[in-house]
């Protein structure tokens, strides 16, 4: 059974600009997006900044009205039956806003428990459990304004679980968490899925999506460009291998030149500390190394390796370009 069904969803933002004459500008944030998420599935929504992930999630959580298309959650329409959808879903948006900073974690949770009509007795038991779950025990009576970014993020998660929703929307839940915290959170998410919750997760981290999600939709410029299991997405690039070259001071026009080479499928450039890492996707494998070096003459080069493509490479190929 499908817990979430999205059909041709579209969302346009209007924003005005200018002081005297306010010009209205339209941004199409989401265009013709369709997918379904099965009951109990952990579904990933992946895409670069501004791809439309948050917009999609906000439409599904009844916070934005779609400009076109439709979506249902547990067979309830997110616009017409918004009132019935709300008690059944929980959500968090990455970041630190959306909490009462002048109150303690405990007070924040108590307040939202009442807003979700959680029975007082139940809330009294569940709130300490949730605080324990997200690892805020011992600090729960302090004001949120004194929390670190990660602590606030975890408080958001506790809040989203207060009413034990069947469907969860997690928009960049690990944003701002340290590696250990992020790993703990991924375990939590996994456990939630084992508890048969349907989860939509957005993230920028490929390995996170790879490790957690049963299926992944890649969204770019408001459109879904791929939707499959992580394994199948990787197969898309299986015929290729990746050559990584450490370079120093790569001029942009040289990247463009390499892109045009016949044996090159995709190029990306990543900045790491002192060096830049040039990644070239090619069907030629190790054979490509001398040809590539020839095209990089005059540049100081570091380590050169070839490796199997990862999900990240598949993603880079899908959304294209250097990042």
């Amino acid at each position: 059974m499908d817990a979430i069904i999205v059909r041709n969803l579209r969302r346009v933002y209007k924003s005005s600009d200018g002081i005297i004459k306010r010009k209205v500008k339209e941004v199409v944030a989401v265009e013709d997006v369709s997918f379904e998420i099965h009951q109990g599935e952990l579904f990933g929504l992946l895409g670069p900044n501004g791809a439309g992930k948050t917009t999609t999630v906000k439409m599904l959580t009844t916070l934005l009205i779609p400009s076109g298309g439709s979506a249902t959650i547990l067979d309830l329409d997110v616009v017409k039956d918004a009132g019935k959808v709300r008690p059944r879903i929980g959500f968090i948006f990455g970041g630190e806003r959306g909490l009462y900073w002048r109150l303690s974690a405990l007070d924040n949770l108590r307040y939202f428990a009442s807003l979700y009509y959680v029975d007082t007795q139940v809330a009294r038991k569940r709130i300490p459990e949730l605080i324990e779950l997200v690892g805020l025990q011992g600090r729960e009576r302090e004001k949120v304004e004194g929390y670190s970014r990660g602590m606030r993020q975890r408080l958001h998660i506790a809040r989203a679980l207060l009413h034990d929703p069947q469907v969860l929307f997690l928009d960049e839940p690990t944003m701002g968490l340290d590696p250990v915290g992020a790993r703990e959170l991924r375990t939590t998410v996994k456990n939630l899925q084992s508890a048969n919750k349907t989860i939509l997760l957005t993230t920028h981290y490929m390995f996170e999506a790879d490790a957690l999600c049963q299926r992944i939709a890649v969204i770019n410029k408001g459109r879904i460009v791929a939707l499959d299991t992580p394994e199948r997405l990787k197969e898309n690039v299986q015929d290729l291998s990746v050559v990584e070259v450490e370079v120093y001071g790569m001029p942009p026009d040289q990247i463009e030149k390499i892109k045009t080479l016949e044996w090159v499928v995709e190029v990306s450039l990543e900045n790491r500390d002192q060096v830049q890492v040039l990644q070239v996707h090619t069907p030629k494998g190790a054979e490509a190394i001398p040809m590539l070096v020839e095209n990089l003459n005059g540049l100081r080069l570091g380590r050169i390796i070839t490796r199997e493509p990862t999900l990240e490479d598949a993603y880079v190929r899908l959304v294209g370009g250097a990042k």
Partner: peptide
Amino acid sequence: WTGTLEPLVASPA
């Protein structure tokens, strides 16, 4: 301004 209107509106209250 504090970003709490969204969770308020999305709650059943």
